[in-house]
Design a protein around this nucleic acid. Structure first.
Lengths: 251, 251
DNA sequence: GCAAAAGTGTTTATGATACACCCATGC
DNA sequence: GCATGGGTGTATCATAAACACTTTTGC
């Protein structure tokens, strides 16, 4: 059943790294803004972005690609993904989740390469260093401004986005994007950016607060040209505790 | 970034094949049967089973393992999984879904082997041949009677079970287990076997029928020693149609 | 004083749950 | 005629959705 006579494929890891960016002023097209109340949720306060690296070698030289690289022969898959990410973005602590293996025989024109894809989330508030990524040929791209990608990376990215959207409803992973202290509006904007749909402000805040996992602080945001919003933090310890008892996040 | 100087690991596929079996009479332990109505759901009319193969080569000779084998150098991952399954069980058309890659460096004592795991469901009604699997050393095991497994296959199986339980609530995959014509009771028993908890008969039937995707037939089951239940079928075409319009299965 | 976003409750609709009895059939 | 499972409806509860105005602050 098992035998080792067959030629071995190369195995890589590729990471879809999601980050968060200040939203640019909405694209020029004068959107016929629906005047509904729930529309007042300022969709677009932040943008979901993806980290890409520009290749300098053939094939696909000059094209943008997901950061990634070879799995070393004695290295676990998750370890390889973290190592590659640290090498390419300098970020150590980030959320990492395996997406799956992509192994179409022709996905790399040179030889058979099977890649194990990961979904990663980097907190650009706590790790501002990574915002620009010191590597010369790296950049953050908003989802609606993606360049053409090398290999089958467009499909991997699409799968990652689908996974992110599914996960965001079942686990509090949004806080992986956010700083330790955040406003409720930031959380809502992030949900809206990820799900691509506006949410009702009052219902959203109510639901978030009823979880008992978002604790209000005695601080407000600073340097805003209007009323300052109260800051909150996510009670991760308590979440882990109630989760062990069967609690399920459900946003 | 990409280079090909590194030694390549071996890559295999392994399949967690779920099937369905008549339930054996409930284990002897005289369960203090709660006399609630909802308990009358005959939990245990069927058992969820997993297909395992007994290894005859070292390492783990004699131990049970998931069916699987090498990915050929020019073969896609899904194709490899289907090929292995057909070779080992004779079943062609089955539900197949990638679970993910397992690649701990020491998971195979001989050399580095990365495996891509799959979740498969075989319909033992439409393909009764596979029930016994002509291979001499294969067998179906109920979840509570699993033997010790080779390699890290226990972890793969656990992951597959978790995925199955999650999927069953969001997609109508239970019908992959069932014959084209089935009774509502069969569906309920199957949900109960997968989720491991009893369900309320009336609520379950109501919900199932309200989907509009379970069509009653003018036929009843045969050869039962009591009132025969009406047969139904799952309207797959209609499901695909409404799903394209955003409908989400939610059982 | 006005622009811009923060903050706050109630009503309504929808879906989930709990629950008990009569019916058909084979033996 | 009795044992076995098939089949059915309603009342209650919990959750989700819709919805508009007052407050604070910087300019």
């Amino acid at each position: 059943m098992y035998s080792y006579q067959y030629p071995h494929p190369a195995v890589t890891v590729d990471c879809v790294v999601f980050g968060l960016d200040e939203a640019r002023p909405a694209p020029s097209g004068a959107s016929a803004r629906g005047d509904r109340e729930s529309r007042g949720s300022t969709l677009g306060t932040c943008d979901l972005t993806v980290l890409l690296i520009q290749r300098d070698l053939d094939p696909y030289a000059g094209a943008w690609a997901l950061p990634g690289g070879f799995v070393r022969i004695d290295e676990g898959l998750d370890v390889a993904a973290r190592r590659e990410l640290e090498e390419e973005t300098g970020v150590r602590d980030l959320y990492l989740e395996q997406l799956g293996a992509f192994g179409a025989p022709d996905r790399d024109p040179r030889e058979r390469v099977i890649t194990v894809a990961y979904l990663a989330i980097v907190n650009l508030f706590d790790h501002p260093v990574a915002a620009a990524t010191d590597a010369r040929n790296a950049g953050w791209f908003a989802l609606d401004e993606l360049p053409r990608l090398a290999f089958d990376h467009d499909r991997i990215l699409e799968a990652a986005l689908g996974r992110l959207r599914a996960n965001v409803r079942e686990e509090p992973i949004v806080f992986e994007f956010l700083p330790g202290k955040f406003t409720l509006r930031q959380v809502q904007s992030l949900y809206e950016a990820i799900l691509g749909e506006p949410l009702d402000k009052r219902n959203f805040r109510k639901k978030l607060q009823e979880t008992g996992l978002i604790v209000p602080l005695d601080e407000v945001e600073t340097a805003v040209a209007h009323r300052a919003a109260r800051l909150h933090r996510f009670d991760r310890e308590r979440y882990e505790a109630v989760r062990a008892e069967g609690y399920r996040w459900n946003a």
